[in-house]
């Protein structure tokens, strides 16, 4: 580098030309070292994820078969059986949670971003952050108190409510952040066309922020999909098929919890398989939504 600089015309007009020293060895070493540290931290972050996934596959893949995916659990001692009812239960509970939590969360996010630039908005923001930090077991107790006690029995609905409460703050805050990222100029463009404020928020601002909002929703979804504690005394679990929303319902996470704590090797193996299935389903659901969103996006957007 230093030798090349000689050929350049002098940049300064004064006689005291600035001489830029060549990059020293020390600076080059620091540069390399910092890059190395950055790469290392990435590996450290990814390593547990990879390890967990690999270990799950190693432990769980052997127990996954058609029966596991299509049958209900067998009593202790009987070989075979599966978690089909738990897969269905999880799907049901998550669907209920999403149906309630997503609109509520997005609505709250819209309020915070578009109308909540004031004291009241600050209160909502604070409450939402607190809610985000409440232990999931406590949320389970709340759902128990407001749904289970009233219905007099455990149900998928109660489980859904518990998970929905957990989803709302995450979705609300990410939606808010994503809406705030939409430039004011885009809103003004819509106002300038005589579009009313609510219409602008729904059709322009929210639409522009769609991919970010969906990321928030997926984040919340993935987080609650594996929750066990709030389901313990809401959905409760069930060893049999259940198609009714107001009856105790099996869930993958509950099933894993129960089986993993049991003294039986067979159930341990099933718990591993259940964990693998749960992770695959979460990854699958998140990817499916991502792909669907990307399909609808125009070139250049």
């Amino acid at each position: 580098m230093a030798s090349r600089r000689k050929g350049l015309p002098e940049m300064t007009t004064t006689s005291t030309a600035i001489v830029i020293p060549p990059i020293s060895l020390w600076r080059r070493i620091v540069d390399r070292a910092m890059t190395g540290v950055a790469v290392l931290t990435v590996i450290l972050v990814l390593l547990p994820l990879g390890a967990i996934f690999a270990y799950l596959i190693y432990k769980g893949i052997g127990s996954i078969n058609l029966a596991f995916l299509t049958q209900t659990p067998k009593p202790v001692g009987e070989p075979g059986g599966g978690m089909a009812n738990a897969i269905l239960g999880s799907a049901t509970i998550l669907a209920i949670a999403s149906l309630m939590g997503v609109p509520l969360g997005i609505g709250a996010g819209i309020y915070l971003a578009e109308y909540g630039r004031n004291r009241y908005g600050d209160i909502v923001r604070f409450v939402s952050d607190v809610l985000n930090g409440v232990p999931s077991i406590v949320i389970g107790i709340v759902a128990y108190a407001i749904v289970v006690l009233r219905q007099k029995h455990f149900s998928a609905l109660a489980g859904g409510v518990a998970l929905a409460i957990m989803m709302v703050p995450t979705i609300a805050r990410t939606t808010e952040q994503m809406l705030l990222l939409v430039p004011q100029a885009i809103r003004e463009a819509a106002y300038g066309l005589g579009v009313s404020r609510w219409r602008t928020t729904l059709s322009i601002t929210l639409r522009t922020a769609t991919s970010g909002v969906i990321t928030g929703v997926m984040l919340a979804f993935a987080r609650v999909a594996g929750e066990t504690a709030p389901l313990l005394f809401t959905a409760f679990g069930n060893q049999f098929w259940n198609w009714k929303l107001d009856q105790p319902t099996a869930a993958l996470s509950l099933q894993i919890y129960t089986y993993a704590l049991s003294p039986f090797d067979d159930w341990h193996r099933q718990a591993w398989a259940g964990s693998l299935v749960l992770i695959v389903l979460i990854v699958g659901a998140v990817s499916a939504v991502r792909i669907a969103v990307r399909r609808g996006t125009l070139a250049g957007a």
Partner: peptide, 17 residues
């Protein structure tokens, strides 16, 4: 505003449309 159109300093097309 339907009778008074406006063009802004920075082009601001709706990006997702």
């Amino acid at each position: 505003r339907r009778r008074v159109g406006m063009v802004f300093q920075k082009p601001n097309p709706f990006p997702t449309m």
